[in-house]
Measured scan of single mutants.
Amino acid sequence: SIEEEIKKAEEAKEKGKTFIHGDFVATTEELLDELLKRLRKKL
């Protein structure tokens, strides 16, 4: 679910890890923020 993806992305951000969502690879905090923004729009 979208909620689960958001939670996983937030955890990755806290730990400074890379998060992959489909073909979107978030390797930096900026990219994770962008991904979180996109996911929240889908809610």
Rank of each mutant, 00 (worst) to 15 (best):
S1E: 09
S1K: 09
S1G: 09
S1D: 11
S1I: 07
S1F: 11
S1P: 07
I2P: 03
I2G: 03
I2V: 08
I2H: 02
I2R: 04
E3Y: 11
E3L: 14
E3T: 08
E3C: 15
E3W: 14
E4W: 11
E4A: 11
E4M: 11
E5T: 15
E5V: 15
I6P: 01
I6F: 01
I6E: 02
I6M: 04
I6T: 02
K7W: 07
K7C: 13
K7V: 05
K7E: 06
K7T: 07
K8D: 03
K8E: 04
K8V: 02
K8N: 07
K8R: 13
K8Q: 11
K8L: 11
A9F: 03
A9L: 13
A9N: 02
A9I: 14
A9Y: 02
A9M: 06
A9K: 03
E10P: 02
E10K: 08
E10I: 12
E10V: 10
E10R: 07
E10G: 03
E11M: 08
E11N: 05
E11R: 06
E11P: 02
E11D: 11
E11I: 07
A12T: 02
A12N: 02
A12E: 03
A12V: 01
A12P: 01
A12R: 02
A12S: 04
A12M: 04
A12W: 03
K13Q: 05
K13S: 03
K13A: 05
K13P: 01
K13N: 02
K13D: 03
K13H: 04
K13F: 06
K13L: 10
K13T: 01
E14P: 02
E14V: 11
E14S: 13
E14H: 10
E14M: 13
E14W: 12
K15G: 08
K15F: 10
K15P: 02
K15I: 04
K15W: 08
G16W: 12
G16Q: 06
G16K: 12
K17G: 13
K17C: 15
K17S: 10
K17V: 13
K17Y: 14
K17E: 14
K17Q: 13
K17H: 13
T18A: 12
T18C: 15
T18S: 10
T18N: 08
T18R: 09
F19I: 06
F19E: 02
F19Y: 13
F19Q: 03
F19M: 06
F19W: 07
F19R: 04
I20C: 15
I20P: 03
I20A: 08
I20R: 06
I20F: 06
I20H: 07
I20V: 11
I20Y: 07
H21K: 05
H21F: 14
H21E: 04
H21G: 05
H21M: 08
H21Y: 15
H21V: 08
G22T: 05
G22Y: 11
G22R: 02
G22Q: 06
G22F: 09
G22M: 09
G22A: 06
D23T: 12
D23H: 07
D23F: 13
D23R: 04
D23N: 13
D23E: 10
F24I: 08
F24Y: 07
F24H: 04
F24E: 05
F24N: 01
F24G: 03
F24W: 10
V25T: 06
V25F: 12
V25L: 09
V25D: 04
A26F: 10
A26Y: 14
A26I: 11
A26T: 03
A26M: 05
A26V: 07
A26S: 03
A26P: 03
T27F: 14
T27Q: 05
T27V: 09
T27R: 06
T27G: 09
T27L: 11
T27C: 14
T27P: 01
T28Q: 01
T28W: 10
T28L: 12
T28A: 06
T28F: 12
E29T: 14
E29N: 11
E29S: 13
E29F: 13
E29P: 15
E30L: 09
E30H: 09
E30I: 07
L31H: 08
L31E: 15
L31S: 05
L31K: 04
L32N: 00
L32E: 00
L32D: 01
L32Q: 00
L32W: 06
L32Y: 11
D33E: 12
D33F: 12
D33M: 10
D33V: 10
D33C: 15
D33A: 11
D33K: 11
D33I: 12
D33T: 09
E34H: 07
E34L: 13
E34T: 07
E34P: 01
E34C: 14
E34R: 10
E34M: 12
E34I: 12
L35T: 01
L35W: 05
L35R: 01
L35P: 00
L35F: 04
L35V: 03
L35D: 00
L35K: 00
L36K: 00
L36W: 05
L36S: 00
L36N: 00
L36D: 00
L36P: 00
L36E: 00
L36H: 00
K37M: 13
K37F: 06
K37V: 08
K37I: 09
K37C: 15
K37Y: 06
R38S: 05
R38I: 14
R38D: 01
R38Q: 11
R38G: 01
R38K: 08
R38W: 15
R38A: 13
R38C: 15
L39Y: 03
L39G: 00
L39I: 05
L39P: 00
L39S: 00
L39R: 01
L39A: 00
R40K: 04
R40Y: 14
K41G: 06
K41P: 00
K41N: 09
K41A: 14
K41V: 08
K41T: 08
K41Y: 07
K41W: 08
K41R: 14
K41I: 10
K42Y: 13
K42C: 15
K42G: 02
K42Q: 13
K42V: 11
K42M: 15
L43F: 08
L43T: 01
L43P: 01
L43I: 04
L43A: 02
L43N: 02
L43D: 00
